[in-house]
Design a protein around this nucleic acid. Structure first.
Lengths: 335, 335
DNA sequence: ATAATTTCATGTAACGTTTCATATTATATT
DNA sequence: AATATAATATGAAACGTTACATGAAATTAT
């Protein structure tokens, strides 16, 4: 006994329309077919409410139309934004996304790469921290923010230029004595170029600067010590701070308030990423904005394009500066 | 000519191990098989680096092990959190997620439901706003935050209790004259019960209260007018405000600052959702926290469970209160 | 009017699994 | 020792699609 809700197949459509199986396939795939045949098939499709079975297609084509995205989590705003735009770029091309959140865990990253290959994804986009991730030769891979050898293209913001831009902005805003604060992975990744860019900018603009760089395991408290050591008579010796991320900037601003320093009156702060709370129009702090939609589009483009020969090893996309209340451009304008 | 990188199939494994196809299938699926056979197959699998083709499995089983998630976007913190935990709950069960961001657009919601069914997903979890969404009978569906008829289970926080809790907290914190602010869809959805709960709490605690409810299309500015109308001699007539979401609370707090009112000194504010900026430990405001991990787990459970008979029409999960700097529990403790 | 050519629908094979009826081997029973 | 029974490996069929070789019909050329 056939189930009452048996899902119709091409065979059913062919029988209903009185045509051959192959003809139905052609109509479904938009391949030209005699007018009368097309109409009959289209009617039958509507009548039976037929929908193609993408699994059978996938089996036949040995293509899955699925791309895995490896990302530490999907809650931090920058990652959430990447997830959103990459998913969008994939859906636009009729691809779907297998979302793998790795929680910054190397073992889990490897596990997901293996799993992704088991699920026979057509490719992987990865923002990963595992320095010796094993990727199968025949699985297309695009990395975000970290070069993983010449065979794998890497997409990132122009982090060096971003660091430089931050220094230049602080100089334009009247700073003379600035600090660079960083916490996070010391892997050789693209975001770590922000430091060199900032240094470069400080030198070319004659800013005196100090660096405080913490590692992944270090305690955030060291920043508080660092800052309080630079307070004399209630005044901070820096008039500008560049934080490696908006996240850090957010925490530093809180710390500065605890230390009875006002932002931006006593010290101006610039972050990096371009986070806007609740998808609003305002940035959480003055910041160097990463072009997330463009990064997403570029990743998907590189991953799915066929002409492998032309894949560049590193694509750096331009960043911009945005005011977010923690700098003093108003004062500048009043001049 | 066979490609050099031909992907190995069960057939290849069977030949390599010198056993039948069905035996390989059993080993792969963990079905007991003679010791010597198992070992030979396992060796062959390792040697050929065989991985099952989930598309062939899907075709045979007419199961896709894919669940579509319909959600307005993946960037707003509450949604991002749902995406994260639902994805996690699905991966735990070897399911994958087809992420569909609808941008609050009814037409797009319908489009995605249709597309999800074309992709032959095993079910759909949806946080949707389209009041007359067409869902196929045989596609399992679980709704979040909005009842969609008796056949479709709905999972939500206990919004009524949350509203009540907010009123009680404000009363405990010494408020006597409070306001409820809401903006958003006027659909008959679960979150809109926060208002009734709050009202109920105010009545039982003898708080005098006022409500300002705006619709989706309305301008946020009306809140600013509303608040400024209640300022006399620089003092706000409310000493407590309950905002329907943390997002609104965030905006209202900014507005209060613009109106030269201090939070929590002049007026205490409680939000709803439990948003923590940058996945930190601190909440963005004092708030009623939604149990997102539990909501996610419940959705997946309900969607994938076989015994259809026992599906409850509405599951309300308990909320909690969390301090987030915009209320004055310190003052209470100092008593 | 017949032959040559083009056009296009047909239907079978194949994609890589799982399942199930059958065949084979090992074990227990008389 | 010979048969009955249990245990288990085998391999063909089927899932729904696409691609391709085949053949039928229509068109053009002679």
């Amino acid at each position: 006994m056939r189930s009452e809700h048996a899902v119709p197949t091409m065979k059913d459509v062919a029988k209903e329309a009185g045509v051959a199986l192959g003809t139905v396939s052609k109509v479904v795939n938009g391949i030209p077919v005699g007018e009368s045949y097309r109409l009959r098939v289209e009617d039958a499709i509507k009548k039976l409410n037929y929908q193609v079975n993408s699994y059978a297609q996938g089996l036949k084509a040995s293509k899955t139309y699925t791309v895995a995205l490896l990302i530490p989590n999907t809650e931090e705003p920058f990652f959430a934004s990447l997830v959103y735009y990459i998913n969008l770029a994939l859906l636009k091309r009729k691809y779907r996304m297998l979302l793998c959140s790795t929680d910054f865990d190397s073992a889990q990253e490897q596990e997901y790469v293996t799993m992704a290959q088991q699920n026979k994804v057509d490719g992987i986009i990865g923002l990963t921290y595992n320095p010796n991730l094993q990727i199968e030769e025949n699985t297309p891979f695009v990395a975000i923010d970290r070069s993983m050898g010449t065979k794998i293209p890497c997409v990132a913001s122009d982090n060096f230029a971003g660091g430089q831009l931050a220094a230049e902005k602080l100089a334009d805003l009247g700073c003379t004595n600035v600090a660079f604060l960083r916490i996070g992975s010391s892997l050789d990744n693209e975001p770590n170029k922000r430091k060199a860019g900032f240094e470069n900018g400080c030198l070319s603009r004659g800013l005196s600067y100090e660096m405080k760089v913490l590692d992944d395991g270090d305690s955030y408290d060291e920043f508080e010590y660092f800052l309080s050591e630079h307070i004399h008579d209630g005044k901070l010796s820096f008039d500008g701070i560049f934080c490696v991320t908006d996240r850090l900037a957010y925490l530093i601003i809180k710390t500065l308030h605890r230390l009875n320093l006002r932002v931006p009156e006593d010290v101006q702060v610039i972050g990096f990423d371009g986070i806007r709370p609740f998808q609003g129009t305002d940035y959480i702090c003055s910041t160097i904005v990463q072009p997330v939609p463009e990064i997403a589009e570029m990743c998907v483009n590189l991953l799915l394009q066929e002409n492998i020969s032309s894949k560049p090893p590193l694509v750096c996309l331009p960043v911009t500066y945005a005011y977010g209340g923690t700098t003093r451009e108003q004062d500048m304008r009043q001049d």
